[in-house]
Design a protein around this nucleic acid. Structure first.
Lengths: 219, 219
DNA sequence: ACTTGAACATACTATCGAGTATGTTGTCAA
DNA sequence: TTGACAACATACTCGATAGTATGTTCAAGT
């Protein structure tokens, strides 16, 4: 019986997760298109051919839904780069690989990454109700951790003499602006296959490492 | 009498412009902080220690106010770079100068530039009431013209052999992401003088031209 | 002095959307 | 089979805010 109960529980949990993911995907698209506050939950519901009741069954508030999309977007980023951080390779190659993985991830999860950006802004400007503000701060720490990973990779490559920059804060910000660019300007074309997308990503990575003073050869 | 009438008219026009500018500055700060739709006109009014009545005396709608801020932001950009475009100088130097001027301008007019960004997004995603949509398109054309100026400067520098890139659209987008970065991440410190701000701008420009393959010497 | 109109402020309306309360359906366990 | 509960849908409430209608002030023209 214990087994039966547990399997049931798991299946249900799985169903719930699926439903929440569907809601999040609709929400991410709406938030991306119109921004957090301009998006009504009725719109989100309509996008997934459903109703507001379903959303409120899974989320206590609009803010919680937003935060879940935010968190999920960050998780996608971590999953994209963490395997590479553990691999043993020359710093400059790791840098390239991490940048590439990030760009590919943001292109694939564009809507979610846009929400992440909105979340960062929200914290910066201190909007959003006070009760959810705490979770927003927590998520911002997650973002800082993510940023720290890049800092490390940058410093390693710097120490190896492959790149050079003056102020690491400005350099890192500029790199992020560059590799996050597709979130803003990338629009998927019809019939655009994986190869073409990779070509775009490669060019972004090229510009990002050039920005860091990489010349293509180790002098 | 004609003279008197005209001088009166001018003074009044000047007063009106001043009042509108004050409203726009408050609006720009609010829109930057909370986004277009999350910003109420009561907030904007409060920020300039005034009331909604004053805003509606000068603007027919919230959208019109937004569009005026947008337009003003673009004008600021044009005024920053146009003198340089007319100067006679080597392409690479002109490129550097234009980038520097742009960065200084966005730092100085941060809130307005943020609104410009929101306006671009709005057009891209087709939000905003249909009647104002036309003017939004018009403003987007202004933005395209601005972008065209940079394209020209890039191509000249490319022809002179000072920089090189694969796809000009991606390169230009990346450059813009980089030099518009301060709109997102720059926060003015107290007691930060002009010199320090220029140092930040210079570093942004450095990264932007590096991104374009500039090595510092003409090979 | 008095009229006029610009430049506001004040007081109100009407709508939209977040949140809630309640109803319906299907599934599983006992 | 029935009771319970998850997973929704439907139907409401209520506060916030864009927009409007009206009142007030003051400076300039006559």
């Amino acid at each position: 019986m214990a087994t039966a109960t547990r399997s049931t529980k798991y299946r249900r949990q799985s169903d719930t997760d699926l439903s929440r993911m569907e809601i999040m995907e609709g929400a991410a698209l709406c938030f991306e298109a119109r921004g957090y506050s301009a998006t009504s939950l009725d719109e989100v519901a309509a996008r997934i051919a459903s109703t507001k009741g379903r959303i409120y069954h899974h989320y206590a508030s609009k803010a919680e839904l937003f935060l879940d999309v935010y968190r999920t977007g960050m998780m996608m980023n971590f999953q994209a780069i963490e395997p590479i951080l553990e691999r043993d390779m020359p710093p400059i190659e790791r840098l390239k690989a991490v940048l590439k993985a990030h760009v590919m991830c943001v292109i694939r999860t564009k809507a979610f990454q846009n929400v992440v950006g909105q979340g960062v802004d929200m914290l910066r400007h201190g909007t959003m109700p006070a009760n959810e503000h705490a979770e927003l701060r927590q998520l911002a720490q997650l973002r800082d951790t993510y940023s720290e990973h890049f800092s490390k990779v940058l410093e390693d490559a710097m120490a190896a003499g492959d790149i050079e920059f003056a102020n690491i804060k400005i350099a890192l910000n500029s790199v992020f602006m560059c590799i996050n660019g597709p979130i803003v300007w990338f629009t998927p074309r019809k019939g655009q296959d994986q190869k073409e997308i990779e070509a775009v990503a490669d060019e972004c990575v090229l510009y990002a490492i050039r920005l860091l003073g990489y010349t293509g050869k180790t002098p």
